[in-house]
């Protein structure tokens, strides 16, 4: 449904995307995971035909984004990170004006608006102005708006940014219900690993390059074993001590030091015996997608410079 081949994009001397290739099957929920500045937003802009690729090609449902932008846009629903709702308009007006943009009108439009407001549980909010809604409800309207014209592919850019955990859960539930109803292909760009964990497959993007692609479980199996995560006041110092004294390989992730090990429980005990005084907390767990990213790139997901718009 989405086809991307050796896609490259540069502005000036900066390479934003470098030979990215992947495909998304119909009905798939596909994640694009990477820190800010990794090229996710640029990729989405190319798919929406707001930017022309410098090299390679991209197609939605068989339509090339560079040569057939109008057809691509009819097939796409997009929910950007910054809300596209007009705050001064009511929920219903926002939906109706969106419909006009896609050439919808009259009864057909009214019925479609009703249907979506119903499905999204927004019927009783339809007369309310967008500015009065909570962040979670705004997101729901945003999603309803993106799906109004019945797109086959939905692009989501950092969909749960700024939402509290309950609203996040709600958002994914609603999205799941919509996916079940229509055969919707979804591409989610995110820097949050728990968002990526929900996807059928994930592409890890770092500095414009695709570093890994696969099912979340398979990606995690790749770095294998379990991870011991140690929280401490001075992570860098502790990491060095662990390497010097125990000869274990460590990684730094924010406030914690991580050690991959086939026998995590044993390693955790060893670490506690040796450095108990400096340790605030120890956690043993399966590696996360962030661990995968860290292992492959040496960088965390929070790092990275602000991406140019």
């Amino acid at each position: 449904m989405i086809h991307i081949a050796s896609l490259g994009y540069r502005f000036g001397s900066r390479v934003a995307l470098d030979g990215v290739t992947f495909g998304v099957a119909a009905g798939e929920l596909f994640g694009l995971l990477g820190p800010n500045g990794s090229g996710k937003s640029t990729l989405l802009r190319i798919l929406t035909s707001l930017r022309r690729p410098s090299q390679g090609e991209a197609a939605i449902d068989g339509c090339d984004v560079a040569s057939r932008p109008a057809e691509v846009r009819r097939r796409l629903g997009v929910a950007f990170q910054s809300p596209s709702l007009d705050k001064k308009l009511s929920v219903e007006e926002n939906m109706r004006f969106q419909g006009y943009l896609f050439g919808m009108r009259g009864r057909a439009l009214a019925e479609r608006v009703d249907e979506l407001l119903e499905n999204f549980g927004l019927q009783d909010r339809r007369k309310e102005r967008a500015e009065t809604l909570s962040g979670g409800l705004k997101r729901r309207v945003e999603l309803a708006k993106a799906l109004l014209h019945g797109p086959r592919v939905l692009l989501l850019d950092e969909p749960s940014t700024g939402l509290d955990p309950a609203a996040r859960r709600d958002f994914w539930e609603v999205l799941g219900a919509m996916r079940g109803r229509d055969e919707l292909t979804v591409l989610v760009a995110t820097h949050l690993m728990d968002e990526a964990e929900r996807c059928d497959r994930v592409a890890l993007l770092d500095q414009g390059r695709l570093v890994a692609l696969g099912k979340p479980g398979a990606l995690k199996d790749r770095i294998g074993g379990e991870t011991v995560s140690v929280e401490t006041a001075q992570p860098a110092l502790l990491a060095k001590k662990i390497e010097d004294r125990l000869g274990l390989k460590t990684r730094l992730a924010g406030e914690s030091v991580r050690v991959d090990s086939p026998d995590a429980a044993g390693t955790a005990r060893k670490l506690l015996d040796a450095f108990g005084a400096e340790v605030q907390a120890v956690r043993v767990g399966r590696p996360t997608l962030e661990d995968v990213f860290l292992t492959l790139t040496g960088r965390g997901l929070d790092a990275g410079e602000e991406e140019a718009p």
Binding site: R73, F80, S82, P83, S84, Q98, L101
Partner: peptide, 13 residues
């Protein structure tokens, strides 16, 4: 700045 325009720009308009 608020994002509304982006929504219009990705519509077939």
């Amino acid at each position: 700045n608020e994002g509304f325009l982006q929504g219009v720009l990705v519509a077939p308009v």
